Amino acid sequence: MTSFAPVHPQQVPVSQPALRLDNVTKSYGSGSARVTALDAVSLALPAQGFTAIMGPSGSGKSTFLHCAAGLDQPTSGSVWMGDTQVSALKPKARTMFRRDHVGFVFQAYNLMSSLTVEQNVTLPLLLAGRTADRGHVEQILESVGLSRMNRRRPAELSGGQQQRVAIARALVTRPGVIFADEPTGALDSRTGQQILLLLRDASRELGQTVVMVTHDPIAAARADRVLFLASGRFAGHLDAPTAGAIEKSLTDLGQW
Results as ranks from 00 to 15, higher is better:
65 L>T: 04
202 A>M: 05
73 Q>M: 10
251 T>Y: 14
154 P>K: 15
22 D>V: 11
117 V>W: 00
4 F>P: 11
118 E>T: 13
173 T>W: 06
61 K>H: 03
163 Q>Y: 08
33 A>L: 13
226 V>T: 07
241 P>H: 04
170 A>D: 04
60 G>P: 02
45 L>A: 08
202 A>C: 12
86 V>P: 01
95 T>Y: 12
24 V>C: 03
54 M>Q: 02
141 L>E: 08
126 L>I: 10
217 P>E: 06
87 S>P: 08
104 F>S: 07
208 Q>P: 09
106 F>R: 06
214 T>S: 07
210 V>R: 00
93 A>N: 08
141 L>H: 07
111 L>C: 07
26 K>W: 00
19 L>C: 07
73 Q>N: 10
41 V>C: 05
194 Q>T: 05
245 A>T: 06
224 D>R: 03
90 K>T: 00
224 D>P: 04
129 G>Q: 14
180 A>S: 12
127 L>M: 09
130 R>G: 07
236 G>F: 02
236 G>H: 01
161 Q>N: 07
14 V>H: 12
34 R>M: 10
247 E>T: 10
184 T>M: 10
188 D>R: 01
47 A>R: 15
143 S>R: 01
36 T>R: 14
42 S>W: 00
51 T>S: 09
83 D>W: 11
223 A>T: 04
173 T>G: 11
16 Q>G: 11
121 V>F: 03
90 K>P: 00
254 G>A: 09
21 L>T: 01
155 A>L: 13
173 T>R: 13
13 P>K: 09
155 A>E: 14
243 A>C: 07
74 P>R: 05
186 A>K: 03
33 A>P: 00
226 V>H: 03
15 S>M: 12
150 N>E: 15
249 S>Y: 05
117 V>G: 06
20 R>T: 12
214 T>D: 04
31 G>Q: 06
80 W>C: 03
134 R>P: 02
64 F>Y: 04
172 V>N: 01
99 R>S: 12
129 G>Y: 15
79 V>I: 08
136 H>S: 07
101 H>A: 10
25 T>K: 08
151 R>D: 15
216 D>V: 05
27 S>E: 07
188 D>A: 12
204 R>P: 03
196 L>C: 09
62 S>E: 03
102 V>E: 11
141 L>F: 02
73 Q>C: 12
91 P>S: 04
200 R>D: 13
109 Y>P: 00
129 G>V: 10
209 T>L: 05
33 A>I: 09
55 G>C: 01
83 D>Q: 11
119 Q>P: 05
136 H>G: 00
18 A>M: 05
129 G>K: 14
122 T>N: 14
209 T>I: 01
203 S>F: 14
240 A>I: 03
232 G>E: 02
215 H>C: 04
19 L>I: 00
57 S>R: 07
132 A>Q: 08
37 A>E: 00
128 A>F: 01
106 F>E: 00
185 G>T: 04
213 V>N: 01
173 T>N: 15
150 N>I: 14
130 R>D: 11
201 D>K: 14
150 N>Y: 15
66 H>D: 13
148 R>D: 12
181 D>M: 11
98 R>C: 07
97 F>D: 05
85 Q>V: 04
204 R>A: 10
174 R>I: 02
